[in-house]
Simulated scan of single mutants.
Amino acid sequence: MPRMTSDLDTYRAAWLLVRQHGDEAGLVAAQRADTLLAVGDLGGCRIWKRILAAVVELGRQEPGNGDRLQ
């Protein structure tokens, strides 16, 4: 059965990854996706690729007045 992860959960995970790893967050997400692919966990790999995309998207956005993730 495929795992379903909401967009909100994906962005929360991405935000936490950025908070923990800073500029290395994208690399960490990519490495986790590669590791899961190597062991045949395609669902987990897809989730980490979504998190990677969210990390990239968060890096493109500059917070405005009052904007922040919680």
Score class of each variant (00 low, 15 high):
A30N: 06
M1E: 12
A14N: 06
M4R: 15
G40S: 02
L16V: 08
S6I: 08
L58I: 04
G22A: 07
H21C: 04
A38H: 12
L69N: 07
A25M: 00
S6N: 06
A25N: 04
D67Y: 08
N65A: 12
T35Q: 14
E57T: 14
L42G: 03
A13R: 14
H21E: 03
D7H: 10
G26R: 05
T35K: 11
R46Q: 14
Q61N: 10
G26A: 13
V56Q: 10
G26C: 04
G64W: 07
R32Y: 00
V28L: 03
R19S: 08
D23E: 14
R50S: 14
Q70G: 14
Q20S: 09
P2G: 06
Q31K: 08
A29Q: 04
E24M: 14
R19G: 11
R60G: 15
A29L: 08
R3W: 02
D67T: 05
D9W: 01
I47A: 14
D41I: 00
L27V: 10
R46P: 03
Q61A: 15
N65P: 11
E57F: 08
P63A: 09
P63M: 02
H21M: 03
R50F: 05
A33W: 04
L52P: 02
Y11R: 09
V56P: 00
R19E: 10
Q70V: 15
R60W: 09
M4N: 13
G64L: 09
W48F: 15
T10N: 06
R19Y: 07
E57I: 03
N65W: 09
I51D: 00
L37Y: 09
P63L: 06
R50K: 07
T5L: 13
N65R: 08
V28G: 00
G22C: 02
D67M: 13
L36N: 03
A25S: 05
A54M: 12
P63I: 05
Q70S: 11
W48E: 09
E62I: 11
R60I: 05
S6M: 07
A14G: 13
L42M: 13
L36A: 02
R3E: 07
G44M: 11
N65D: 12
R60P: 03
G40F: 06
M1H: 08
G66R: 11
R46S: 12
L37N: 03
R50Q: 13
G44L: 07
M1F: 04
A25F: 03
M4V: 13
L36D: 00
A38C: 06
L36Q: 07
L69M: 11
T35A: 15
L36F: 09
L52I: 00
A25T: 03
G43N: 10
A29N: 05
R50N: 12
D7I: 10
L69A: 15
Q20V: 04
